[in-house]
Nucleic acid binder design. Structure first.
Lengths: 270, 270
DNA sequence: CGATGGATTGAACTGGTTCAAGTGGAGTGG
DNA sequence: CCACTCCACTTGAACCAGTTCAATCCATCG
């Protein structure tokens, strides 16, 4: 695969499941220790530590060293734009830490967030030569960027890597179908329950927190635009779940899921 | 790529753009002549004519002959199930002619159709070992089926083929994002206009019909479940577009788009 | 010709939106 | 350290797009 190629662009997002390694703040340190999916070479090597994250386990150490050379790392502050719709799609991005939102807009400002991405996820893998989405930092983020032409060559050079990314793209496609069911057919309450459980699942792999605690990084507006609702509805549904005794809040962003079973049932409309 | 592999399952749908070749009814004959993307070996060879369709241009004639051996062709009548959610995911399916719907359900019967597939499209490409969707024949369909284990090996044997399928998967992922924007943020009218234009686009490649004619193969209920609306709303929106003079109907399934420009504007909320 | 099932139409209803006001916590500056 | 501002969030009340329920139409088929 990838021996010859015309389309070298990118668009796609996938959960890669390997949190940042060389991040120095304590949360991320703990986060790294939590996952079992760290540097597969058992050496905390340079490649794994800084360049490509989740992709590293598809490569051996020497391959990794070469592969790392084509990327650059940098930061974006919360609310900054990483790339915009219709901009030339030059790069594949891999998130090393923080939260990113991927969105699309209608001309009158209506916005749909198609996904939230976390440490280990990548995006920018499309077949078009322009991004057809906007990516923005929700929190401060560490990013790793690969020129799309070069990474397409890497997929050819390292078939395991290409195969890994293909796997992740298919997994991502699966989850967009779940999201379509949510957007098209679930009620506001079902949507919010599904969201909270999905966040617990995703963030649970990256952060060490109490069993049923979820630290939601994004605003109510973001949640609304992700679930196809308004801020007001999100707020009311939080209140409703609280009154039912299913969740406890601490500020607007820390949620304790008091009854996972009941929330799961609500999430699928049982 | 695809030199070694653990996950060999499938889930995904992609537009491949090559209509059936050896189909004998006149519509399909014309359809075939319409596309320029036919047998790339200029021989109307056995492989291209019956087994794999859209994938054939990624292979030379000998490769194609081998590749064809792993598939079997068969038919399904309208309304029959091709594969079901939670059933063991043994096959990748390629549609040779007809229309298929891919859907997901909630336990109380609410249904979301995540996509309609036509000649040249494939599905069943997931990372899970069970399908997480149901595929049903909307019209009578000719299908070509590949055991997933064997086709994964084919991707390794013929890198061009694997790369082609990867491309198609990414394209499919792109279009699911457009659909999420539609489901989450568009009004009923915008949804129907978007749908009609998308159908014109897709079917226009497969059928020879008058410039602005669209022959919609699916029922109002299917359209509703695809757009996240009810049958009644679909019906009312058809009437509304007709009264505005933007479309003309002939029976419930033949639509003439009288003003593509206006419909396009309505589709994106301008 | 009556039966069956999809499509349309009408009328009442409602979940979620819209608009508007109020609350609370973090940051700023006097 | 307090007052002031800002902005995200919450709450309330009126509204409405789309749903629900019910009746009817209409094409096909035995």
């Amino acid at each position: 695969m990838f021996n010859k190629k015309q389309h070298v662009d990118f668009q796609g997002q996938s959960k890669l499941g390997v949190p940042p390694y060389n991040n120095t703040d304590s949360t991320s340190e703990r986060a790294f220790r939590k996952t079992s999916n760290h540097c597969p070479h058992n050496t905390a090597c340079e490649g794994c530590s800084s360049r490509h994250l989740s992709l590293c386990s598809a490569l051996d150490r020497d391959e990794l060293k070469d592969f790392s050379k084509i990327s650059i790392d940098y930061q974006k502050e919360a609310k900054q734009i990483i790339c915009s719709e219709d901009e030339e799609a030059k790069y594949l991005y891999n998130i090393r830490s923080g939260t990113v939102r991927i969105s699309k807009m209608l001309s009158d400002g209506r916005r749909q967030i198609t996904g939230f991405l976390f440490a280990g996820d990548f995006f920018g893998l499309s077949c078009k030569d322009r991004y057809n989405f906007t990516a923005e930092a929700v929190t401060n983020v560490d990013i790793c960027r690969f020129p799309r032409t070069k990474i397409m060559q890497s997929f050819r050079d390292y078939p395991n890597l290409g195969e890994r990314v293909f796997d992740m793209t298919r997994t991502e496609l699966d989850s967009t179908h779940d999201q379509m069911l949510l957007l098209g057919r679930k009620t506001a309450q079902e949507k919010l329950c599904s969201f909270l459980l999905a966040m617990k699942e995703k963030l649970g792999r990256l952060e060490v927190v109490a069993e049923n605690e979820v630290d939601i990084p994004m605003s109510r507006t973001d949640i609304a635009d992700y679930l196809g609702l308004t801020v007001e509805t999100i707020s009311r549904q939080f209140t409703k779940l609280h009154k039912k005794g299913l969740i406890e809040m601490e500020g607007a962003h820390k949620v304790f899921l008091k009854d996972i079973k009941a929330l799961s049932a609500l999430a699928i409309g049982d």
